[in-house]
């Protein structure tokens, strides 16, 4: 690594579409820095799949790489087909909370169950941003959104915990206030196999912060920082208090046999049986 890191070496010469203050800039920076520090000078060993929503635009078409911008919620199935037929490529899925654990939830659970060899980075801005700020499966209880004008009457989903339950090899949650931890999580995930999930709690000053009473993006990021607690710190708290916090850290790290391993072993066995 003789040259200094610059995101430009990995990006097409296009203007990024995100609002000022959007957390996507932080995610792009942390991800590409992790790629750089992992020794990849370009993205030729990567394929990016994304769905519909603001964060699905992170790789597509801005990354100088192969990218498949799929339908809303369907990035993981498409990534499944890509990975199974091109097992040597790093398949990375980018998506928002609505995309990955709203409309696409079933694919998320099943990919984790299969231990499909993909890294899913879910940018959780707790809102449907692209459509203007509707309630999401991750919106905190009582938050005002355009479709919950009196405050949300539902409780949010804990996606990282769900990934653990479903069988992921790796699951972590950080926020845009934890840039270094996020970068390190990506580096670790890139070295692992199987289903790897990183949730990044991110600020949407335009569609979330404004209605939730935040002055600007900076105030949101500061709130992430003071409101985050580690997994260890949750041990002394009750469920109600934990629900008010953002629990950050690594939820699981293990080596369960992955889908690529099991499916290609099955092919070998089928061919052996056939020969006998």
């Amino acid at each position: 690594m003789t040259e200094a890191f610059s995101v430009k070496q990995y990006l097409r010469d296009l203007k990024l579409p995100f609002c000022p203050g959007c957390g996507a800039f932080t995610v792009i920076n942390a991800f590409l820095k992790a790629v750089y520090e992992s020794g990849y000078t370009d993205l030729s060993k990567f394929v990016f799949c994304s769905g519909i929503g603001c964060s699905s635009w992170i790789p597509s078409p801005y990354f100088k790489a192969d990218s498949i911008h799929t339908l809303h919620g369907r990035s993981i199935p498409v990534a499944t087909g890509v990975k199974l037929m091109r097992p040597n490529l790093n398949v990375v899925v980018f998506g928002g909370d609505g995309d990955i654990v709203g409309i696409g939830l079933s694919h998320f659970i099943h990919a984790a169950r299969r231990n499909l060899d993909v890294l899913v980075i879910m940018v959780n801005n707790m809102i449907y941003g692209m459509t203007g700020g509707q309630v999401a499966p991750t919106t905190p209880f009582k938050t005002k959104t355009t479709t919950t004008p009196y405050g949300s009457f539902e409780h949010p989903l804990d996606a990282a915990k769900l990934a653990v339950t479903a069988g992921a090899n790796y699951a972590a949650r950080w926020t845009t206030a934890h840039q270094n931890e996020l970068k390190e999580a990506v580096k670790k995930a890139l070295e692992m196999k199987g289903f790897r999930f990183i949730e990044v709690v991110s600020q949407c000053p335009t569609a979330f912060g404004r209605r939730a009473g935040f002055k600007d993006a900076g105030e949101m990021v500061r709130w992430f920082k003071v409101n985050s607690i580690t997994i260890k710190q949750t041990k002394n708290l009750n469920e109600e208090d934990i629900a008010k916090k953002i629990v950050v850290g690594e939820f699981i790290q293990k080596r369960r046999p992955t889908l690529i391993e099991t499916i290609y072993n099955t092919i070998k066995e089928a061919q052996k049986t056939e020969e006998n």
């Binding site: 199935p77 498409v78 499944t80 087909g81 890509v82 199974l84 037929m85 079933s106 092919i267 061919q271």
Partner: peptide, 26 residues
């Protein structure tokens, strides 16, 4: 599998055709 190909049962039909589309781009 006998000829080195992959057949997988997905969680629904939407995932099935999604995987086929991904495989096609692969």
């Amino acid at each position: 599998p006998q000829i080195g190909g992959i057949a997988i049962q997905m969680e629904d039909e939407i995932a099935s055709i999604g995987a086929v589309i991904g495989a096609s781009w692969a």
